[in-house]
Amino acid sequence: MALSSNFWIWIAAILTLAIYSFLYKDNPFYKFAEYLLVGISIGYGISVYWHNTIITKVFNPLVYDKNFLVLIPLLLGLLMFSRFFKNVAYLSRIPIAFVVGAGTGLSVPSSFEFLFKQVYATMPTKLDIGIIIIVIGVISTLIYFFFSLEHKGFVGRVSRVGITFIMVAFGAAFGYTIMARVSLFIGRIQFLLSDWLGIIK
C-alpha cells in the first residue's frame, strides 16, 4: 500500500490533524474544523428529518394514501411554532401536553417493570459469595442515598460501606473511560496510518 490517492481520505486526514492540533495549542485550524463539524451535523440532521419525517410521515400519506388523519398530528406539531408569537405562545402547550402525557404514560409502567427486573435479579437464588456481595452492595448503597435518617451509628457505618461500593464502581467506570478514549484515538491513528499513509495494512 502507498499514500492514498482518494481525495476524500485526504480531506478526512487533514481535518483529523486539524482537530488534534488543539493538543498543542488552540489555533485557527482547530477552530475551522470544529465549526465545520457543527455546521455539517446540523445540515445532515435537517436533511434526514426532512426526508424521513416530512416526506414519509406527512407528505406521502396525505398525497398518495389520502390518509387525512395525519393532519391531526401535523396540526399539533405546527402549534409548536406558536412560541415565536407572543400573543398565541400558550398554544404550544397543547402539543407539549400530548408529548409529556403520552411519554409519561409509556415510561412509568415500563420503568416499574425495569425496577422489578433489577430487584428480581438481585434476589439470591443461590448462596455464593458473589450474590452476597451484590446484596450487601445494593442495600448499603441505598442506605447511603437515604436522606430521612441521620448517618450516625449503625446507619452511618452501613452508609460508609455503601460509599465504598460507589467508589469502587467509579474506579471501574474511570478505567473503562480511559479505555474508551484510547480506543477512539486508536481508531483515528489506524485511519491515518493505514487508509491515508498506507504504512500498515
Binding site: 446484596v135 445494593v138 442506605i143 442515598f145
Partner: peptide, 15 residues
Amino acid sequence: KVIIMSILVLGFLLS
C-alpha cells in the same frame, strides 16, 4: 427504598 431493601433482606433470609 425501605420497601425495596426489605424485599431484598427478606429474599436473602428466605434463601
